[in-house]
Amino acid sequence: MDILASFEWSFIWENREELWEGFKNTMKASAIGIGGAFVIGLVLGAIRAHRIPVASQLAATYVEIIRNTPILVQIFFIFYFLPRVGVSLEPFTVAWVAVMIWGGAFNTENFRAGFEAVPQRLREAGLALGFSPFKTFLNVTLPVGGRIALPSSINTYISVLKNTSLMLVVGYAELTAVAYSIQANTFRTFEMFAVLAVAYLAIVWMLSALIRLLEARLRLPEAL
């Protein structure tokens, strides 16, 4: 067990600044990606649930393409596609755009399922109260369906965060990429894995706990 004996905390401490920068970059790309995925999911989910012609089919196509292709290939594709349409391309841009598009597709499904689970009679009640269809959506479908979709959408956000680790391939210095390059130069495998494991598991487990908490707190009354 010489491996564990040679584990040096001081090595992690010596590289703390670089690793901290990496962690911040992970959080930056994740935050933008999650925000974008939320908006995309909400809008396209609503379009899908209300079967708005053409837009709904386009959204479905987008969802199927993203869900049936590897995100790593999507990242490559974006990396080579964006410049073709004249978008300047920093690794950071590729990072958040890629996870946003990916998360948006999964979130579209989450919100669609949430909105479709809202009983028809609730919507009818909203319309009967004189709300416009849009107002009905805002006041009835969104709060109820959004609540139903919340746990699964948080699951998607967890995956979005985990997927930022793939940005290693486009040279974005997020946490995994930083640990990777430190390991490549020093071969401190266990120290670097410990950093990655603690960082990712802490966030992922916290968010999972949040899901369980919300599931308990936000449970809709049975009578619905």
Partner: peptide
Amino acid sequence: IEVWRGLPIIVTILFIYWLP
């Protein structure tokens, strides 16, 4: 279950590949 589901797969694969 929670460890291997919680970690990004790329981290798991890198770790195994790095193992001496």
